[in-house]
């Protein structure tokens, strides 16, 4: 075989591998969209479920997921950002920060069901929050904080040190440099990290299983201490726990969840590209 032929063969193999990698994603999306669209209607999006969830809509699950995601953001964004700023801008390299970093890496690797059990123990039982939106949000926040810290820290570190030195040499405090130069420069990276972290929280089932999710609750939560339905758990329930569930409802729910998560994902990419183009150094 000539060298050109070998090269062509090599490229062909690589192309096939690349297609094989992305094919499942397109398949999943295609199937969900195709079968899900049949189930989507105005009523499906805005009505309460009826007849043991076999009819009606998924409104409370949508609202529940939005509530939980907002609750998670409320806790995880300030804590994650604070942690990232501390680690990147203030912390010295000592045993404490090394331990914190090690913990972050390990937290990111913990299975989500373990977070769920921990949330049950700490928030639901020990802190007596009950199965509630608060307990669920806190549990999801615990899972999200490490993601936000590590992406935000990376974004902060990507800002050249020299800017900080210039700020100090002009008599600025460390915090003034962070607020006026470093944070604005790192903001696109931080925002993407936050969105991706929240996205994962929005799609998780295990952490909310014991801490907030209601099996069947055809009404909206009336207080933060109420239970709520949520899309991922609802999908799990109607797919595995209820016999004779119409496929349109299952796939419709999946489509709504997918659309929610995917649109946030796209938003993150748009923010990233937009700011990268405007970056000035």
């Amino acid at each position: 075989m000539s060298r050109q032929a070998i090269q062509r063969l090599g490229f062909a193999v690589l192309t096939i591998v690349a297609v094989l990698v992305v094919a499942p994603i397109f398949l999943v999306v295609a199937v969900v969209v195709f079968r899900g669209l049949q189930g989507i209607s105005w009523e499906f999006l805005t009505a309460m479920p009826r007849d043991g969830m076999k009819a009606g809509g998924i409104f409370p699950a949508i609202v529940g997921t939005l509530l939980l995601t907002s609750g998670t953001a409320l806790v995880a964004v300030p804590m994650g950002l604070g942690g990232a700023i501390y680690l990147s801008e203030y912390a010295h390299d000592n045993w404490l920060t090394r331990a914190v970093r090690l913990a972050l890496v390990n937290l990111a690797g913990i299975p989500s069901i373990v977070y769920g059990l921990f949330g049950l123990g700490l928030f639901v039982l020990f802190l007596r929050l009950g199965t509630s939106v608060v307990a669920g949000s806190l549990t999801l926040a615990m899972m999200t904080i490490p993601v936000i810290i590590s992406t935000a820290e990376e974004a902060l570190r990507a800002v050249p040190t020299e800017f900080r030195t210039v700020n100090l040499s002009l008599g600025g405090s460390r915090w003034q440099g962070i607020r006026r130069i470093v944070l604005p420069q790192a903001l696109p990276g931080i925002t993407t990290g936050i969105i991706l972290g929240l996205l994962r929280a929005a799609g998780e089932t295990a952490p909310i299983l014991f801490t907030v999710a209601a099996f069947y609750m055809p009404q909206l939560p009336r207080s933060p201490l109420d239970q709520t339905m949520a899309l991922p758990y609802h999908l799990y329930v109607i797919s595995t726990q209820v016999p004779n569930m119409p496929g349109t409802i299952q796939y419709g729910t999946a489509l709504v969840l997918l659309a929610l998560v995917l649109s946030m994902n796209i938003l993150a990419s748009v923010i990233r590209t937009y700011f990268r183009r405007r970056r000035q150094w």
């Binding site: 020299e162 800017f163 030195t165 210039v166 002009l170 008599g171 405090s173 130069i181 000035q280």
Partner: peptide, 20 residues
């Protein structure tokens, strides 16, 4: 120290304009 650095300015080897 901040007041000292306002009295004593510094210019570095490479031009380092801040983004803006």
């Amino acid at each position: 120290v901040a007041a000292l650095r306002r009295r004593v300015g510094m210019v570095f080897a490479l031009p380092l304009p801040l983004p803006g």
